[in-house]
């Protein structure tokens, strides 16, 4: 049996726990001990920073559709704007999920959760940026 298959039950359990937390986040407050409020406030600020990132992506989606009318064909604009809007929604969901998981980890005294989301977001934004540079430089589309 592969290592992935051996870890599968634990992964499934963790996924089920996260989904249950999304729908009943108040359960977080019944677990463990209340952490130092300064840590909770820092966690809240991180959450807000992710929300700002999400808002910036959504605003960028609107901006592409409104301000790049001379450069881009209608369908390219719509596709890029839609990609940014979807990215914004993903960022928002991740913000809530990560905030809940950090809060729970602090209450339990466990390690903070790690995530590959920032790297994925960075790669996506870089790809879109390079595509835009090409489109504007060479007048494609």
């Amino acid at each position: 049996m592969s290592a992935f298959a051996q870890r599968l039950p634990a992964r499934l359990r963790a996924a089920r726990d996260s989904v249950r937390l999304w729908f009943a986040p108040a359960r977080v407050q019944r677990e463990g001990a209340t952490p130092d409020y300064r840590f909770s406030l820092a966690n809240e600020r991180t959450f807000l920073a992710w929300i700002r990132t999400a808002l910036a992506l959504i605003g960028g989606g609107f901006a592409i559709d409104q301000f790049l009318t001379d450069h881009l064909a209608r369908w390219v604009r719509a596709a890029l704007a839609l990609a940014l809007l979807v990215g914004g929604v993903a960022c928002t969901l991740r913000a809530v999920n990560h905030w809940v998981r950090c809060e729970r980890a602090m209450r339990r005294g466990a390690d903070l959760p790690v995530s590959r989301f920032p790297a994925l977001l960075a790669v996506t934004v870089a790809v879109i940026a390079v595509a835009m540079v090409c489109v504007v430089l060479f007048g494609w589309a």
Binding site: T92, A95, W99, V100
Partner: peptide, 13 residues
Amino acid sequence: PSTMPPRSAAAVA
């Protein structure tokens, strides 16, 4: 200060 209520986080989202 108390922790941000989870419902606020959900409402912001």
